[in-house]
Amino acid sequence: MQLLSLRQKKIFFLSNNSTDTAESIRKKLQGMGLSIHHTSILVATELVGDYLLEKYGKIRVKTFGTTALEQSIKSCGHIISSASSKDPCDVVVVGRDPSFTYEKLYDCTRTLTNGAKLVAVNPDLFHPGEDGSRVPETGAIISAIQAVSGYSDYESVGKPFDYSFKKIQEQSLSEPKSCIMIGDNPYTDILGGYMAGMHTAWISHGEIFPSELGFKPDVTVSSIGELVPYILFGEFQEESYEA
């Protein structure tokens, strides 16, 4: 981080997190000894409201997720309907919901069959727990909803979908080819950066890059420290993005 700052690189943290805010993530980074202004953090939780506003205008929304997700959407002027309400709504937004229940699954699928659109904060099926276990994520809930409702299509704000990458380009005033996406998830970080037209640097942790993706990252390293030579002498320009 210090090296990037000294070389006057613009640094953005792009997170698929659907429970935290940019401010809470900033505090976590500070606890790790990193100092970064909250405007350099884009988190999917806070992007959903803007996405809905830009695409649909101010609408009626049901949320299945955390209070932070609901408040973020409400702050953009959308009307929040109770999850159990039978009133019609325009969009159902789903994030990681540790309290997701059979009743919520029923309420969500009923709303979709009545004509609402489905929006996922991110498509992640799980994230790694501290003990190495798989912690269910938004995508796992989406899969359950699709299985019951028969609703195959959904929109998503998080990586690898393009909305979050476009937001960073808008804020940084940079072209994709002057940006590098750094991350350790091939299916979200690296695929998203590749589809956005950015350079990509994959932190492999000793794994093999999935061949089914049909491309290879520009740079593959085992740890983030190995990126230093590329920062000092590589051809990458202006930006550095981290998942």
Rank of each mutant, 00 (worst) to 15 (best):
M1V: 14
M1P: 07
L4G: 12
L4K: 03
S5P: 00
I11T: 12
I11S: 01
F12M: 10
F12S: 00
F13D: 01
F13C: 01
S18I: 08
E23V: 09
E23S: 14
S24N: 07
K27W: 04
K28I: 09
L29Y: 12
G31Y: 11
G33S: 04
G33T: 07
L34A: 07
H37F: 11
I41V: 10
V43M: 04
A44P: 03
G49R: 01
Y51A: 06
Y56D: 05
K62T: 07
F64R: 02
T66P: 02
A68Q: 15
S72P: 04
K74D: 05
I80L: 14
K86F: 12
K86W: 06
D87T: 11
D87G: 01
C89A: 13
D90P: 01
V91C: 13
V92K: 01
V93E: 01
G95R: 00
D97N: 14
T101C: 12
K104L: 11
C108L: 15
T111G: 14
L112S: 03
T113Q: 15
N114D: 09
N114S: 12
N122H: 15
P123H: 02
D124N: 10
L125P: 01
H127M: 08
H127D: 00
P128A: 13
P128L: 12
P128V: 12
G129S: 10
G132F: 03
G132K: 04
G132Q: 05
S133V: 07
R134Q: 13
P136S: 08
T138Q: 04
I141Q: 02
D153A: 10
Y154D: 06
Y154F: 15
S156T: 13
V157P: 01
P160N: 06
Y163F: 15
S164Q: 14
Q171P: 00
E175S: 14
P176V: 13
D184S: 03
N185R: 11
Y187Q: 13
T188P: 09
I190A: 12
G192F: 04
Y194I: 00
M195V: 12
H199L: 11
T200F: 07
T200D: 05
I203D: 00
I203A: 00
S204D: 02
E207L: 13
P210H: 08
E212P: 04
G214C: 02
G214E: 05
F215A: 13
K216E: 13
K216I: 11
P217D: 03
V219Y: 14
T220D: 02
S222E: 14
E226A: 13
E226H: 10
V228N: 10
V228M: 12
V228E: 15
P229F: 11
Y230E: 06
F233Q: 08
Q237N: 11
S240G: 11
